[in-house]
Design a protein around this nucleic acid. Sequence first.
RNA 1: UGGGUUAUUGUGUAAAGGUAGCACUACAGAUUUUGAUUCUGUCUGUCUAGGUUCGAAUCCUAGUAACCCAACCA
Length: 553
Amino acid sequence: MSEEKNLNFIEEIVETDLNEGKYKSIITRFPPEPNGYLHIGHSKSICLNFGLAKKYGGSTNLRFDDTNPVTEDTEYVESIKDDIRWLGFEWSNEFYASDYFDTLFEYAVQLINKGLAYVDDSTSEEIATLKGTPTEPGKDSKYRSRTIEENIALFNEMRDGKYKDGEKVLRAKIDMAHTNMLMRDPIIYRIKHAHHHRTGDKWCIYPMYDFAHGQSDSIENITHSICTLEFIPHRELYDWLIEKLNIFPSHQYEFARLNMTYTVMSKRKLLQLVNEGHVSGWDDPRMPTISGFRRKGYTPLSIRNFCEKIGVAKRENLIDLSLLEFCLREDLNMTAKRVMAVLDPLKLIITNYEEGKTEILTSENGPDESLGHRSIPFGRELWIEREDFMEEAAKKWFRLAPGAMVRLKSAYIVKCESFEKDNDGNVTAIHCTYIPESKSGQDTSGISVKGTIHWVSVEHAATAEVRLYDRLFKSENPAAEEGDFKEYMNPDSLQIINNAFIEPSLLTANLEDRFQFIRKGYFCLDKDSTLEKLVFNRTVTLKDAWSKEVKKS
RNA sequence: UGGGUUAUUGUGUAAAGGUAGCACUACAGAUUUUGAUUCUGUCUGUCUAGGUUCGAAUCCUAGUAACCCAACCA
């Protein structure tokens, strides 16, 4: 037997449970609250929950934890479903905590009947005061000793809308001196005269998280309820309620949430970025949301691989963004079509090439044969990248400079003979000669050059807008910095190039296509594109050994 | 100063008393019609102090540090 199973601790628990016959199969659930868009941290939870079920032959429910009507909306429900499907997962059942409102109400009544819950008329301030502190025990509310009959009557009146928001709450009767603050008579129902996105105005009382989550798990026969570390203190209450209600014993397990460098992950902060206009929306390609990554050109596989690689454990972590980018490039490298685009153009004129002549050259679409070939027009005047020319060659410079030779990708070797400058000293054009025998694929020149550069024919070039994205924050961990996290935003996180020159084959690009603009990075078409104007997003740069070389000196 | 959780290289994650491994990053080199890819190699680690043991990341004792808990949020 192989010893290298390398299971994470949750897989170990599942295997043990299965081996011991505790369960015949497992059921997991992904339980988002529909009050925001899913982010990369959620994808860790999604991959874990769905992955576990897939691996061990179980099933996974999608359950919306919609117990707080004032923050939730169907817009979020739809985006969440889109994102999960896009990631490549399908749920067995689509449930809502609000599906269980009737049952939950009955559970509450049962608790009251067992003398384990009571209606409290205290204000929220009074309740907070009586709760004590982590180091001091709390004190009993004066309403704690109400009779069962009184509590039942009051709770029914709460449901019937007799009271205003905040006038009364239903509390579990546990222990006001408990060392776990959550066990000090937690509120389990509160009054909210609010319209719910699914139940409408049927209810004016809503269960709290603690009285909905575990119960929903139980109703769905969830075997392994997996959540993040901050819910550890809730587990005691989770178990208490299941025991007192005597319902299916789901079990909660906690893992460390994903944190990533150069971004923020809390919903509150992401909402702020959107609402205050620091980004264009939840799907702004700079956002760590799944929809943001999708729009930026990330692939589902890359995100799944990333989630696999980061592992699952209980210790706090801050994952390098470079690992995500590695997973992305790993995927795109195999699948993206290679094309040529010039982002910062400089004109190159081949003085010994016949004026008005056009050659149709052939180029491979990528390293994998299956990507096929395409035709590219070539002519006397070309656009090349301004950064590919230096008036005075630096050491180890492989590109164009007076007297230097480079290959034009899939075309000819050219030699720089001279260049033009305007009055401000800016280079305006390069004059080259080409070597006719050096044509790509049939080179008999015997010349070998160190550098190969990309180009686009001036006559045939199309134009496009290109959006270059960089990390949203300057700081590795903006949430941990002093002061407002927004002070640490990267002012250059978006650079727009209005008129890039692209090879004509790009005119037929689709939204789903992934390209590598040779030597510039991976790109995809943005949804803002129109027939008149194509817009490309840079998904990620290529690794760049030259820029490191430059930094060194 | 209560309770809970966690500590393995720059980052993340394995090792269930028996060679501290893998990946990312970084660095060096080879190949290259992308300074990409690919390939090869190098570097750095068991929170601290004691103890048990032939042998400790792992067990014991005492510390230290980080994170979470006092929402009618989830």
